[in-house]
């Protein structure tokens, strides 16, 4: 085994130790509190140490090209035990989940919220074709594949979805781990927030649901079960919701929003 790879493993153990020693932190901000889990510290530490300025000496060896490639290529396989864990969380609650299965089904259409909320903002900011790519969905693999097939990635639409993909990859988990419990203060029930956590991104779902579970430990089992059931459903019907609902809705809203503004502005920026 290569020396650099052993360094990577030792580094991972150190990051985990540091993140766990910091532990669960709750920062009160007025009536709302922001919960930070060890997983948030883990991603922040390993990301920040990878900044250019820190990449010297031994840190440079840890973040060698091969090691970073290993992490991104095999991240999915490192996630698999988590996915296997979800089966054990859903199984005992399957009856309960199936009895309200229709709620799980309808909340999938909440994914259209990316367009309903995101598209007007994008148009307001002056984005045009880029808005198509960046508001079609959460910007994960499904949207990336659809947009690149339809417009290629080297188009305005493609750049839009790619940007969202990058932003989501880097900030998504941290974002949802903070936002999910905050919504409890807005009157949302934790069961509803748990179902909403299954959005089609493994790391974002994990971040949102574990943050909720840490906030309301009594319902941890239900939260994890609902979130993972919803995640599984998203991976089944996510593509269908995108192709048959999101795309037509987006086309309709796009025409409505840019009408009168003409297509001039995007041509100028393009």
């Amino acid at each position: 085994m290569k020396f650099n790879f052993i360094l990577l493993l030792i580094f991972a153990l150190l990051v985990i130790t540091a993140a766990e020693m910091i532990g669960f932190q709750s920062i009160p901000l007025g009536p709302i509190s922001i919960n930070l889990l060890p997983l948030v510290f883990a991603i922040l530490i390993s990301m920040v140490l990878g900044f250019g300025i820190f990449r010297k000496g031994i840190v440079k060896k840890i973040y060698s090209e091969k090691n970073v490639t290993f992490a991104s290529k095999y991240l999915i396989f490192i996630m698999l035990p988590l996915m296997a864990r979800y089966g054990a969380d859903v199984a005992p609650k399957l009856q309960e989940i199936l009895s309200i299965g229709w709620i799980f089904l309808i909340q999938e259409f909440g994914h259209l919220g990316t367009i309903l909320l995101g598209l007007p903002v994008a148009i307001f900011l002056g984005l045009r074709r880029e808005a198509i790519g960046s508001t079609l969905g959460l910007g994960r693999e499904g949207e990336l594949a659809y947009i690149s097939e339809k417009y290629t990635l080297d188009s305005d639409e493609g750049r839009g979805v790619l940007s969202l993909y990058i932003i989501g990859t880097i900030f998504g988990a941290v974002f949802f781990s903070i936002v999910a419990p905050v919504l409890l203060h807005f009157g949302y029930r934790v069961e509803a927030l748990a179902m909403a956590s299954g959005m089609g991104s493994g790391s974002m779902m994990t971040a949102a649901s574990s943050s909720l579970a840490a906030t309301i430990p009594d319902k941890a089992k239900t939260i994890i079960a609902y979130a993972s059931a919803s995640q599984l459903l998203s991976s089944f019907i996510g593509t269908f919701v995108m192709v048959f609902c999101a795309v037509p809705l987006q086309t309709f809203m796009y025409k409505l929003l840019v009408r009168g503004k003409g297509d001039k502005s995007w041509k100028q920026t393009a």
Binding site: A12, I16, A71, S210
Partner: peptide, 11 residues
């Protein structure tokens, strides 16, 4: 979750 996010950060 912690090890996964550690590798996510590196990746």
């Amino acid at each position: 979750t912690t090890p996964i996010l550690t590798f996510a950060g590196i990746s």
